[in-house]
Computed example of a mutant assay.
Amino acid sequence: MTDHKMLLYPKIQASSTQQGAVLIVVLLFLVLIILGGVIAVKNSTTDLRLATSDQINTLLVQSADNANQNIEQSINGGSSDPMYIAMTSSGGPFGHFMSKIGNIDDEYIFCFRPRGEFFNINRATINVPGGGNVSGSDNGYCNPAVPDDYVSQRNASMTQVSVSLTPPNPDYEVFRNYTIGQDGSKISSQAFLFDINSTAILPSYAGSSTAAADCLEQTSKYESVVDKDDTIAGCMAQAGVPSTALYEMANVENQSQRTKCADLGVGNGKSTELLCDLIP
């Protein structure tokens, strides 16, 4: 007699059920991979924007600072230098204010063009209080449509310079407008304090082709407007034009003549004769 035993075998799941579980796992992995890719792309885009922003800021600062350095070198150079003469003449940005007291509230504007003579006395704009400008002086604004108005041949950045007299302030040093070593009764002994604003922009990054040109016609004298949006910096910010403005205060004064005499005990013994030389 044969004994029959019942053997228990594991249940086998249907193939369709197994395929569904694998599909769900694969989809989860795909979702995780996609999320990782999106995060990586987003981080890369942010890093790229930060790098681009840093490059733009560096370029703008260099463009504005280049204008300030050229102005400093010209005004500190020799009195026979052509650029010194142009800057301090009656038609120049400094001489305009020093030659006539009635010009104290004006604003002298010119476009910085370092590829040639960075300042041209015939290409300047002089704005007067209350709006408007001196007749025949409306070509000092930088123009994004003119290649020569850019700092370099890359036509990337341009810099516009504004020069004006520093407004009175009770915190300023007493007698700061007199040259040390000269009599205060002399007109030549007066010193002048100037506000120099150099605004560098990137017109190609502007949302509108005319936005930068319109903003360049605004003032840099913050004390002359009620709304800061009416200034160059405020207008550029509203128009979305990348810009940087560097402010510098310049003290321009005449060098007084000093008298150098012979040291005590040195000379020919004649008390009536002065052994002195004038030093400029």
Rank of each mutant, 00 (worst) to 15 (best):
T2D: 01
D3G: 01
H4C: 14
M6V: 04
L7T: 00
I12A: 08
Q18K: 00
A21F: 07
L23C: 01
I24V: 13
L27Y: 09
L28G: 14
L28T: 06
F29A: 02
L30H: 01
L32T: 12
G36K: 05
I39P: 04
S44F: 04
S44W: 07
D47P: 06
D47F: 09
L50R: 02
L50H: 04
T52Y: 02
D54R: 08
Q55A: 00
T58W: 06
N66C: 09
N68M: 06
Q69H: 02
E72A: 11
E72V: 14
P82F: 12
M83R: 15
M83G: 05
T88S: 10
S90L: 01
G91S: 00
G92V: 02
F94H: 02
H96Y: 07
M98K: 04
I101R: 00
I104T: 11
I109H: 11
C111L: 06
F112G: 04
R115L: 10
E117D: 03
F119S: 09
N120M: 06
I121C: 04
R123E: 14
R123H: 14
A124G: 00
N127A: 10
G130K: 13
G131M: 07
G131E: 05
G132Y: 08
G132T: 06
V134G: 03
V134D: 10
G140R: 03
Y141E: 07
N143Y: 03
P144V: 08
A145E: 08
D149Y: 02
V151H: 07
Q160P: 05
V161C: 09
T166F: 10
Y172L: 13
V174S: 06
F175S: 13
F175R: 10
N177H: 12
T179Q: 14
I180A: 14
I180E: 15
G181E: 15
Q182T: 13
S189M: 01
S189K: 03
S189H: 02
Q190N: 08
A191V: 02
F192I: 12
F192W: 15
L193K: 09
I196W: 09
S198K: 02
T199R: 01
A200C: 10
A200T: 12
S204E: 06
S204K: 00
S208T: 10
S208A: 14
A213G: 12
C215A: 08
E217I: 04
E217F: 03
Q218K: 15
S220Y: 00
Y222K: 15
E223T: 15
S224W: 10
V225I: 13
D227P: 03
D229F: 06
D229K: 11
D230K: 14
T231L: 11
T231M: 11
Q238K: 08
G240R: 00
T244D: 00
T244S: 01
E248D: 13
M249E: 05
D263M: 12
L264F: 13
L264D: 10
L264P: 03
G265W: 02
G267W: 07
K270S: 12
K270C: 09
T272Y: 05
L274H: 04
L274V: 05
I279M: 10
P280I: 02
